[in-house]
């Protein structure tokens, strides 16, 4: 293909996106579009899978059978999200094994929030309320993103996430209406999860490297700072209802802007975790690698069995 023809294809492609048409796996797409989508969708899939670990940590210790079943179902939903996001990613010409390899080698990233430990039951509430709440704000715009399989996966993911978010908030509400010990547990969880949740929206716009291109492809519709502000504006009144305090002395409603002003995020901590040195980065990755390695004989056996069955079928037919 000549350079001129590629340029022409490029122009047609960008025009389709501008018209809000969906790009499907078999359509022509610029290599950079493909790579960017593999990166983002797989990062999202990895986040779902790694995200199972901090919450899975409380399945055996959930305080009631009802909570235990709800938590199991939630973690299972995350596995399901991982599954369809990996599938969406595979339509771009990369295998699940390759994607896992990228996760296990540390080449691919996942959401840093899951590198924090879940130390009390209230953390399960806080994750649902804050982490899923932040995820929804990040993800709702993606239901209209340009790549068809991703957009469709996100519609389902967002529905389930908003259910999880309500469930998490309900755990917090129960704790806050409970004994002083329970309320203290809820406050402590908010103290620990608040700032990392704000960090989920990524670096400030000035520092963010991918924003412009992502906006064009509708992988992003608002900037990190806009989304972060939206999260804060939405979440602070919810904390008020719970009767617990957001751990930010500078947090104040600004009558002029109609938004909350908030304190400085600890960007050193942000980068430390992103670079792999958060409290649980090592454990999370080890857990994933170990599950994968310990499962190798199972996957090999399943393949061998399927081959044998196939051979039997062929032998029978001939």
């Amino acid at each position: 293909m000549s350079e001129k023809e590629v340029k022409n294809l490029d122009a047609i492609f960008e025009a389709r996106i501008a018209r809000d048409e969906k790009i499907e796996p078999k359509d022509w797409m610029p290599e950079k579009y493909r790579q960017t989508h593999i990166r983002q969708i797989s990062q999202h899939a990895h986040s779902e899978i790694v995200g199972m670990l901090p919450e899975g940590n409380w399945i055996t210790r959930a305080p009631s059978l009802r909570r235990k079943a709800a938590l199991l179902a939630k973690v299972q939903d995350e596995a399901g999200h991982g599954l369809y996001l990996y599938s969406a990613c595979e339509t771009l010409g990369i295998s699940r094994e390759e994607l896992y390899e990228q996760l296990h080698s540390g080449k691919a990233k996942y959401s840093s929030i899951f590198n924090y430990p879940t130390v009390t039951w209230a953390d399960i509430g806080a994750i649902g309320w804050l982490v899923d709440g932040a995820a929804i704000i990040n993800q709702v715009p993606l239901c209209n993103t340009s790549f068809g399989p991703y957009a469709r996966a996100m519609v389902r993911v967002c529905k389930e996430e908003s259910f999880h978010q309500r469930q998490g908030y309900e755990i917090m509400l129960t704790l806050c209406k409970g004994t002083p010990e329970q309320k203290a547990m809820a406050q402590d969880a908010l103290n620990r999860w608040w700032w990392p949740s704000l960090m989920m929206f990524g670096p400030t716009d000035a520092e963010s490297t991918h924003t412009e291109q992502s906006m064009k492809w509708k992988l992003k519709r608002k900037t990190n700072d806009e989304l972060r502000q939206q999260f804060i504006d939405q979440t602070v009144p919810q904390a008020d209802i719970l009767g617990i305090t957001v751990p930010d002395p500078d947090l104040k409603f600004n009558e002029e802007t109609g938004h909350y002003d908030f304190g400085e995020i600890d960007w050193d901590e942000f980068w430390q975790v992103v670079k792999g040195h958060g409290p649980c980065n090592k454990q999370r990755l080890e857990a994933r690698v170990s599950a994968w390695e310990r499962g190798a004989w199972v996957r090999d056996a399943a393949m061998a069995y399927a081959d044998k069955q196939q051979t039997k079928k062929v032998a029978k037919a001939s």
Partner: peptide
């Protein structure tokens, strides 16, 4: 429940 998240495949 102990296994959730640690299985050989999703």
């Amino acid at each position: 429940g102990e296994l959730c998240g640690h299985g050989p495949t999703l």
